[in-house]
């Protein structure tokens, strides 16, 4: 089946317009998922929430399953700021292997919110989900979303965000992909002076296939959209990156930037990238940069001359690149934990 269509098509034989995956990736029978831990959200959690509608489709039968056969719907109406982040942990185990969930965060006017969602487990997990973040006027939301599956799994994830006037959304997406990881991220910058930042880091090994389709549509004036992605591919991993910043007519004085760095840590890893800038408004400042390659030999030589092994030197460089993206993460301890996790994931044979 073909998933995660690019918003703009290009030549079919490039193989980037969509993600071609085997039908067996889709799981028909969904069993209950109960291992959900929610912290710091008592007053915000709407237990009577119903299913939501969503417009961004990922394709195949995944969308129908998500709307009709999900096993978790979490809705948070966040109407006051608080110091501690709302944390939602989905722990996958033998009895909780399949998660088809909808999560909605409605951040009310003038509210600051910090959100952490993590999916982890040591089983062959199946995940099909959507996160919707609606930032009302003058609100601010920071989210950290982590997927960490130890065994070969399926991760199909959508984001569908709206960012209103003078509000700011920052999402840090950390994907320790294993198996299939198909991610569609969409943000609509509705309001003037809105800001939407997506930072993504990923590490993929084995025969993992990562398909990232990130899009930010800028409608509001004096707004700012940013997509920054850094990843490392090991073994025979493959990555597709489709990034789009779309300056719609009227978004005067807005800016957008897209930056993709893909580090190839194996000669058998493969990277495809399609970083797009679409512009129907003249008075904007848009730019993108992308680079692909292995870790610079000069950098390695410098570090190795300080007594590090080659593999440790590579790890050090990769972590430094990741650190740039994860900089300013609201939880410093968590950031260090993530960097340590990157260190562990990078244990490999060159």
């Amino acid at each position: 089946m073909r998933l995660n269509n690019s918003p703009i098509l290009t030549t079919r034989n490039y193989g980037i317009n969509d993600a071609k995956v085997d039908d067996s990736v889709f799981c028909q029978e969904i069993t209950p998922f109960e291992n959900i831990i929610i912290e710091n959200a008592d007053s915000f959690f709407n237990k009577n929430a119903k299913k939501i509608s969503f417009s961004k489709k990922i394709g195949g039968d995944f969308d129908l399953q998500l709307s009709q056969n999900n096993n978790a719907v979490l809705n948070f109406e966040i109407d006051k700021s608080q110091e501690n982040p709302i944390c939602i942990s989905f722990k996958f185990d033998e009895n909780n292997k399949m998660l088809v969930e909808q999560i909605v965060f409605n951040i009310k006017e003038n509210v600051d919110a910090k959100l952490i969602v993590s999916l982890s487990g040591e089983v062959d997990a199946y995940h099909n989900g959507i996160v919707k973040i609606n930032c009302e006027k003058n609100s601010k939301a920071e989210m950290l979303f982590i997927t960490d599956f130890e065994k070969e799994s399926v991760n199909v994830l959508r984001f569908e965000n709206s960012v209103d006037e003078a509000s700011k959304l920052k999402v840090s997406l950390v994907d320790f992909a294993n198996g299939h990881s198909i991610i569609n991220y969409y943000s609509k910058l509705n309001g003037d002076e809105s800001k939407s930042i997506l930072n993504c880091v990923y590490v993929a090994g084995g025969k993992t296939f990562v398909d990232l389709n990130f899009e930010q549509d800028v409608f509001g004036k004096k707004s700012e959209a940013s997509i920054q992605t850094v990843g490392a591919l090991l073994a025979e991993a493959r990555k597709h990156f489709k990034g789009t910043i779309n300056f719609e007519k009227g978004c005067k004085k807005s800016s957008g930037s897209e930056d993709e760095l893909c580090l190839l840590l194996s000669k058998n890893a493969k990277s495809k990238a399609l970083p797009m800038l679409l512009c129907t408004e003249e008075d904007v400042d848009g730019k993108h940069a992308s680079s692909v390659g292995k870790v610079s030999e000069k950098e390695l030589f410098y570090i190795m001359s300080r007594g590090f092994s080659r593999q440790d030197a590579i790890k050090l460089v990769v972590k430094a690149k990741f650190n740039i993206v994860l900089e300013n993460l609201f939880d410093v301890k968590l950031k260090q934990k993530l960097i340590d996790l990157v260190d562990r994931k990078l244990n490999y044979e060159e």
Binding site: I8, T10, T11, Y14, G15, I16, C262, L264, K270, S271, K272, A273, L274, P275, M276, L277, L278, C279, H288, S290, V292, G293
Partner: peptide, 8 residues
């Protein structure tokens, strides 16, 4: 519009 594709 800018639509650059790379395959490595």
């Amino acid at each position: 519009d800018t639509i650059p594709f790379s395959n490595v």
